[in-house]
Design a protein around this nucleic acid. Sequence first.
DNA 1: CCTACCGATCGGTAGG
DNA 2: CCTACCGATCGGTAGG
Lengths: 198, 198
Amino acid sequence: MVEPSRRRAIEDVASDLFRERGYSATSVRDIARALDIQGASLYAHVTSKADVLWAIVDRAATRFETATAAATDRAASSSPGDRAAELAALVRAHVEVIAADPGDAMVFVHEWRALDPTRRAAILLRRDAYEGRFRDMIQRGIGDGTFRLTDPSIAGAFVLTALNGIAAWYRPEGRLGVDRIADHYADLTLRALTADHD
Amino acid sequence: MVEPSRRRAIEDVASDLFRERGYSATSVRDIARALDIQGASLYAHVTSKADVLWAIVDRAATRFETATAAATDRAASSSPGDRAAELAALVRAHVEVIAADPGDAMVFVHEWRALDPTRRAAILLRRDAYEGRFRDMIQRGIGDGTFRLTDPSIAGAFVLTALNGIAAWYRPEGRLGVDRIADHYADLTLRALTADHD
DNA sequence: CCTACCGATCGGTAGG
DNA sequence: CCTACCGATCGGTAGG
């Protein structure tokens, strides 16, 4: 028994299937089959397919929020006022959360559409707040001359969708490890935004 | 009768619904309802839901292929050897195709997973060839010193997913028109890739 | 393009 | 966690 809980194992398996086929193309029987149990047996551990989706989306959102908050705090204290270092830390943290669980990340990015209206509204608020961190940091960097003058909304969308794209193609056994990918993405992001110097 | 054909109207309505909810969360009755007809009546014009998906994916792929080929040809003849101008033209063409039909673009980017194995394999080949154009252009630009030394695969993925993200948020009535968005995206892309000069 | 209908599969429940 | 089963909905067909 390696799994901490059956409930968690169900969410993990569902996350991978939702990533590959999408929420509504995945049946509860598909999830059960991956665990070698009967479809109906799932309901001893979860109350509905919708609740499994919510659990995945919620934990993914929480991970993005906490990891990036910690990273920017660290950057702010180790190199205070350095907007480029702060943004690089934000980008790296985001990339690391995706690579740690690409299934969850993919579901968070794409499958929130399948949530019921109440939960969808709640997750959209959190997503907007999260994206706001990127926008705000770009805005501050423009203000102090670190980043060149540009549209923070467009630049934020450009960067965030580029980062989120990793969830679709990343494989743990791939050519590049998380660190190298994070290096490249932080570099490309800073290049796109940083003002020319000298 | 504004529609050139009923078949085309079905595809257009399906494209929007597939964009919003995904292919498998959209029923044939949903498509029919948007056209104010009965679900079964669709089958007077199409042979299956799967064929409607294929028609959308195929036409989207074709549009990306032809628009970017034309744009790079134009750039290559008006400013020969200018890799930056060529890449900018490629980016602009891609953005314009997305904005011209974000539904088709979204379906092309995300819903190809729902295709049957044969068609999925066929579209993946075309997608890989298409993405190869971006990679190759980056590679050539690195070769002649226009672009800085970097991983063309990673840089290509970064840029293409950033561009494709537009399909998810673009609205014709939005704050910025297609041209302004294309300006920003071409600029951000070139900044991310271009070697420092002087 | 409609009504009437088909078998298959869906998410989920009852009762062990 | 299983068997047996439920009503609803799915994509699609027959026959006008």
